[in-house]
Amino acid sequence: MMEGSGALQLVLSGDPALYAVVRLSLVVSLSAVAVAALIGMPLGGLIALTRFPGRAGVIVLLNAFMGLPPVVVGLAVFLLLSRSGPLGAWGLLFTPTAMVMAQAVLITPIIAALTRQSVEDLWSEYRDELNAMGVGPFQRLLTLLYDARIALVTVLLAGFGRAAAEVGAVMIVGGNINGFTRVMTTAIALETSKGDLPLAMGLGLILIIIVFAMNASAWGLRLYAERRIG
């Protein structure tokens, strides 16, 4: 009980250090969603619309990658960015950029796989009409991505939820450096292990509120869009 009210006080007090952590979490995860969307959406659309040998295998693999363990992704990006790694010269390890990279790797397969499914479903509905209008392959991809936009908002949300909630990848490549790479999930893990439960709970509460608010607004947007667009 005591700890619960302490958590609430912390959240309401607007402690600058706490909000720096929250802000970094949002910046990192939203950037990761942006990067993953830029890669995953066209990729998913392309896989949906092209036929090539081994396509079924690629789809199975993509779906399997939706469940990549964050720590494994963190480790892979860590090896890539570490001093002796192939991208070591960039000096990105233990920076927010590295965290964005790791989360982007984690959720690109999610966005690509869900986009592929949406675009493929829409294509089976639109195929005859688009062919009858002589729509070329590139325009076809753009049209389907645009017309799948309501579903794709949900896809982005799934990616954001996964990125914001994971702790393993950002811990490994970010290092949970106070004031620099500390985000909500790594802070919660640290404060819990140190025994500062009010802070951990306060952060947990904020994390839940953010994810809840995101989902609620996406749901509202969807309702609105369905009424507007059909």
Binding site: E125, Y126, D128, E129, N131, A132, M133, G134, T143, D147, R149, I150, I229, G230
Partner: peptide
């Protein structure tokens, strides 16, 4: 088979979500 000067109206036309 690319359509030049022809068009079709299907029995159940599919309209774009626009």
């Amino acid at each position: 088979p690319a359509p030049r000067r022809r068009a079709i109206v299907f029995q159940h036309p599919v309209l774009l979500r626009r």
